[in-house]
Amino acid sequence: MVDRRALGGAAAALAVAALGWAATAGPLAGASVPAAHASSADLAATTAQVTAGTRGGDLYQASCAACHGQAGEGTPNGPALTGSGAAAVDFMLRTGRMPLPAPNQPVRRGTPAFAEDDIVALVAFVAGLGQGPAIPDVQVSAASDTAAGRAAYIANCAACHGAGASGDAVGGGQVAPPLLDTAPTQVGEAIRIGPGAMPAFDTRQISDAELGQIAAYLQFLKHEAAPGGATVGGVGPVAEGYVGWLVYLVGLIGVTRWIERRRKTP
């Protein structure tokens, strides 16, 4: 079955690649096709096709197939996507980690390359290539239990991301990024899929309810946890030391020089 698809896909892909380029970056860019705003179940049902022709398929062939394979089977430049599921694709696209500008570049957070409609289409398409975790339902409200969120965060996340969620280096060229600006759904997706160097967390380690609680706690950290003033990066004593030294060298040495300045006597 894959062979037939590959043959057919290869022929169509060449034609569509040109069309896809034209549609996204070339002369036809800006002419948008309305995407399907559907629930996860609908997406799974309606996007079983791997052939080009759907919006998601077009985008996939144009931006992803070179590294991930035309049917998501993987290539030396990129892993297979058949086990990704909607959560992984949604996470990678919305945080701008994918697509990579070139193969074997470090995977870093950035500006998303696609608009909302395109992301939904791509997610639906790639999720249909195989089986994987669905996009978790992460709810954050004023009534969220930030205490439970804090406890779960400290136990599972703080070691890499920092108690203040400012992120840190984890070695091997990897970085656990800051989380204060991450959307709640992406927080939940990352926890479930374990992107990059991050391990995945099962529902029995971090329950579905705790996803929302952790996301709520992160929002609390961003907005309400600094009664003492400016947080200077939230990385703790290192930044505090720099600030202290700067204030001392500029402020206090400046003051002592002013006090003993030599003035012309009248």
């Binding site: 070691a159 003033g229 200077v232």
Partner: peptide, 25 residues
């Protein structure tokens, strides 16, 4: 300028840790 926000670190739990972890300068 905020310094040593202990509520962010939370109480000491021997099996937990946060990074970055440095002492005062």
């Amino acid at each position: 300028v905020q310094i040593n926000p202990v509520w962010v670190y939370g109480p000491y739990i021997p099996s937990a840790v946060s990074s970055p972890a440095q002492p005062d300068w």
